[in-house]
Design a protein around this nucleic acid. Structure first.
Length: 779
RNA sequence: GGGCCUGUGGUUCAGUGGUAGAACGUCUGCUUCACGUGCAGAAGGUCCGCGGUUCAAUUCCGCGCAGGCCCACCA
């Protein structure tokens, strides 16, 4: 100790020591109620990003606090299968999964993950995330696969999972079905063309942005209330360029105001088309392949966007376009790759959710949301659901769906529980009819597994922690996926909520804008760790209200670093002056000492309540204000005289106060800045305190009865001190300049035995009785 | 179009039914004895606008305006 504070050296030292000594290892025998955390398993992606750093830091504050008031189960996992992982591996290894043998690609994924995962996790450790890294899972490991497949089988048996051939949301880039939750908006420029359909020799105008779907047109809708078009109902319309006829049908959904009031229905332009075609039992014309290319005639193999151009120019050539204008509209794209989605009828597996919306909202209500308004986002999402949860993906690297189909009798054969985990591609099964069954090739979407993280985490410790867990921490962007799906699974499997509390972090923005790689406004946490250290980064993350976005500014990290320096220097001073401290409580405490102990005791309780309420920012502010101003600027100045010049009880009283006040400050700060507080604790307090690490020490409590007189004395004392300081500043003299002080009789009486302290800290030559007055002595 | 969030000194943000706070920035001053990465002091705000409830509104309610996020709109 007692040198310059070197965060790099110190943070690395304690990170390694915590790990070696297993300070954060879960111990089911430890006393106290277990606070269990359904830790978010980050998607393996090479590097931690700033949003991770922000939200994991926020959850770690709560968890480190909880550890000081009880027992904690804080596992750690990585989410490393499914589309995001496939895309990562494709990028890292410059391959395409669909152009490789399935087995080879899976092996490449597993091997690559082995290479990169430990480096990836290291970022979390560097940030000081106090998880039990031994309680580790990967969402593709054997145990997770088993739990995930078991869940599939259970839900299938309960009739909550079904398979259906249905036009579903399809990504032509990733060539798989995806779920509603994976859609994103994207603003796109487009041409809005009014085309000439024909009906009984007359032009029938229909506007569209998707002329390439003309060959998939199956009907034309008009509104029965539309006087202009009513007479057309029941007749046929001829599709321009392709010259086939489709029925004109009355349907209320045709908006009289929109476009020309006439609407073409294609298989499939959007969700509306899917519903319309089902409603009228029309026969779809499927013109798209799975890779988004057209499948017929001279357009064979041409991708949608290219085909659109060709068809438009052909329409133009034949003068079939009445009118055309450029518009900008919003289209749905796949969140993983930004590709416009299509609707393709494929056979997929779904979890029933649409008929349980009400129940799912009720479940959400039973959970305590921090902040509360985040529940609304959940509720809105559930209310707006239009599809059952599509869980199958036409990909390779995921948890296999543990079923076989018999082509002869159309039966589904489920894997037995004791075979799990199983890859149906590797195991032959016979149907009872005797025929060899076909293995299911599709895999489960990654959310189908990560929605089981409470079960997976619990299984790591022989299910010693039950569902519901105490807390799910996560960011708000995945309420509609991770939070929602976990609530679904927990309801279906356990008829329970997955956790009692959910805390939701905001985003990190830069100049008010969301950070994103494409915008190029990304700040990397690794660079912050390098320059300012984990404690400073955490201190920054502790400054924002839970759920609110935080606007990144480098100056906030400088503020954090300054706080750490101050904490270091103050501790240095205190410890230096505790060399001859006898560890005993003096028989009688000086009044000012009692005043500070009383304050720190109150602070400890307040901060405890704030942490309990997830109000980290307020807790940080309270500790900071007390530490910097009450403790450093005032108290340390006041007791310097007694420390330097006195002996015996007067000094011991100050030493006792210094010891307990500093230790308390360190403990209160320790959830936020774990490294520096551990360093100071280990350097001095460890010798006298029982606990091996400050992070497993008890939350400080004081056996102090609040004394109003002492509080008033303290306030008066500080008021006088401030007046003296102001006087000296205005006179432009040093704060150490000697003065003569005059104080009213009443107040002198109140100050009583603290007069000596007052005299010393104001450097008063004498304190006289009389109307309040400050004077510089005559030269 | 619907839902939610935000709007407070130059900047970033706390906060409260009764004189408005912090950090940074700015200005002035102060260095033997933890820290000048410090200490002391100061300047700086019709708390987005308009209504309503109230003895009292920056705070509660309603309506606007502005920004953000999510959803819907893709004829």
């Amino acid at each position: 100790m007692l040198k310059q504070y070197n965060f790099k050296e110190i943070e690395e030292k304690w990170r390694k020591w915590w790990e070696k000594e297993k300070i954060f290892k879960f111990n089911s025998k430890k006393k106290g109620k277990v606070f269990s955390v359904d830790t978010p398993p980050p998607t393996v992606s090479g590097k931690m990003h700033i949003g991770h750093a922000f939200s994991y830091a926020q959850q770690d504050f709560i968890i480190r606090f909880k550890r000081m008031t009880g027992n904690v189960f804080y596992p750690f996992g990585t989410d490393d299968n499914g589309l995001p992982t496939e895309r990562l591996i494709e990028k890292l290894k410059n391959v395409k999964s669909k152009s490789m043998p399935r087995e080879d690609f899976i092996k490449l994924c597993l091997d690559t993950l082995k290479e990169i995962t430990s480096d990836f996790i290291l970022d979390w450790k560097k940030l000081g995330i106090s998880a039990d890294y031994d309680a580790y899972y990967s969402t593709i490991d054997e145990n997770s696969r088993k739990i995930s497949q078991k869940s599939f089988i259970e839900l299938y048996k309960k009739g909550l999972i079904y398979k259906k051939k249905f036009p579903t949301i399809w990504c032509p880039e990733c060539q798989t079905a995806i779920a509603q939750a994976e859609l994103e908006d994207k603003q796109e420029d487009s041409l809005f063309s009014t085309l000439k359909f024909m009906c009984e020799g007359k032009e029938l105008l229909i506007a569209t942005t998707r002329p390439e779907l003309l060959p998939a047109c199956v009907a034309v809708f008009v509104n029965p209330k539309d006087k202009r078009h009513k007479h057309l109902i029941g007749k046929k319309a001829k599709v321009p360029l392709f010259d086939f006829e489709v029925p004109i049908i009355e349907d209320e959904s045709a908006d009289i105001e929109k476009g020309t009031g006439v609407l073409m229905v294609c298989s499939y332009g959007d969700k509306f088309d899917v519903d319309a075609i089902n409603r009228h039992k029309l026969k779809p014309r499927i013109i798209l392949n799975e890779d988004g290319s057209l499948n017929f005639g001279k357009y064979k193999g041409i991708k949608v966007k290219e085909a659109r151009k060709i068809i438009l120019s052909e329409l133009k050539e034949k003068e079939l376009i009445k009118e055309q204008k450029s518009i900008s509209h919003v289209v749905n794209v796949h969140d993983k790759c930004g590709t416009e989605i299509e609707f393709l009828p494929t056979e997929q597996w779904f979890v029933k959710i649409l008929d349980k919306k009400k129940k799912l909202i009720e479940q959400g209500k039973k959970i305590k949301w921090h902040p509360e308004f985040m529940f609304k986002r959940y509720e809105n999402w559930v209310k707006g659901l239009e599809w059952d949860w599509s869980i199958s993906r036409d990909r390779y690297f995921g948890v296999p769906i543990p079923v076989w189909h018999c082509k002869r009798c159309n039966k589904i054969i489920l894997a037995e529980e004791d075979e799990l985990p199983i890859d149906p591609m590797q195991v032959k099964k016979k149907c009872i009819c005797g025929k060899t069954a076909e293995p299911e090739k599709k895999v489960l979407d990654t959310w189908a597994t990560s929605s089981l993280t409470p079960q997976i985490a619990s299984s790591l410790i022989s299910n010693k922690v039950k569902i519901p867990f105490s807390l799910r921490p996560q960011a708000h962007d995945i309420i509609r996926t991770w939070a929602f799906y976990t609530i679904v699974k927990s309801l279906y499997h356990k008829n329970n909520i997955p956790w009692k509390n959910i805390m939701i972090s905001g985003f990190v923005t830069l100049h008010g804008k969301k950070m994103s790689k494409s915008k190029g406004n990304v700040i990397e946490p690794q660079a912050i760790l390098e320059k300012y250290g984990a404690d400073a980064l955490r201190f920054w993350a502790a400054g924002s209200k839970l759920g609110e976005d935080i606007n990144y500014q480098e100056k906030d990290l400088i503020t954090g670093k300054k706080l750490l320096t101050k904490l270091w220097n103050a501790s240095k001073f205190v410890i230096m002056n505790l060399k001859d401290y006898k560890l005993e409580k003096p028989k009688k405490l000086e009044k000012i000492d009692f005043w500070v102990l009383q304050k720190v005791s109150e602070l400890s309780n307040e901060v405890r309540n704030l942490y309990e309420e997830y109000n980290i920012a307020e807790a940080r502010k309270k500790i900071e204000l007390f530490f910097w101003h009450d403790f450093c600027d005032n108290y340390l100045e006041i007791i310097k005289n007694r420390i330097y010049n006195k002996k015996g009880r007067e000094k011991e009283s100050a030493q006792y106060t210094l010891y307990h006040t500093l230790l308390t400050i360190l403990k209160l700060f320790s959830p936020i800045t774990p490294f520096i507080t551990e360093e100071i604790y280990q350097n001095y307090f460890k010798e006298y305190e029982k606990e091996k690490s400050i992070h497993i020490s008890k939350w400080p409590t004081f056996d102090i009865k609040k004394n109003k007189d002492v509080e008033e004395l303290g306030n008066l004392f500080i008021e006088i001190l401030q007046k003296v300081r102001k006087y000296k500043t205005e006179k432009k003299v040093s704060l150490k300049k000697e003065i003569v002080l005059q104080i009213e009789k009443e107040k002198l009486k109140q100050i009583g035995s603290a007069l000596e302290d007052l005299k010393a800290v104001t450097n008063a030559k004498e304190i006289k009785e009389g109307p309040f007055k400050i004077e510089l002595p005559n030269p």
